[in-house]
Amino acid sequence: MDFLDEIEASVPALRRYARALTRNADRADDLVQDCLERAISRRGLFAPTGQLEGWLFRILVNLWRNATRSERRRGEHLPFEDLPVEPSVPPAQPGRIALAEMSRAIDRLPPEQREALLLVVLEGKSYEEAASILSIPSGTLMSRLGRARSALRSLTGGSDEPRLRSVK
């Protein structure tokens, strides 16, 4: 499998992650296209000992960060802290989180928490891989993960739920 085939094998995962980050299929594909162009034109910079997919994810994350940063400068998106807090709706069924509610809650996570949570949960990256993709120490990754999970819990009304035990 050569370099380009290997890249192609990673494209579906890159798209999935980009869609979850941006919540917009067109924007996600723009991001992935940008990422692929960069990777291919800079293939000389890729060290063959490294993980190709991790390198692609790192490029994607950096492009996304650049994009969200400039959007925030243009004022298109409100920072998380300024969003009005909606009263959280109790889950429709105990023990199940309504997907639409979770989807809204993820949108409201600060970008750095969303990046971390989605890499680990959606892409199944190990904590080390995720930290390396995000260029942060693993302690920072764990604390972002912790904050993301607490935030999602309060945003989806989880703290008001009846106590449930996870049963195997």
Partner: peptide
């Protein structure tokens, strides 16, 4: 338990990989 359900919800929301052929602009070659 809530964290576990978050994981399930995230995977239910986003996980299915697109099985359609890649659009031309996303094909490395």
């Amino acid at each position: 338990a809530h964290w576990q359900r978050q994981n399930e919800a995230i995977n239910a929301l986003f996980a299915p990989l697109d099985s359609q052929p890649l659009p031309e602009r996303l094909r490395p070659r």
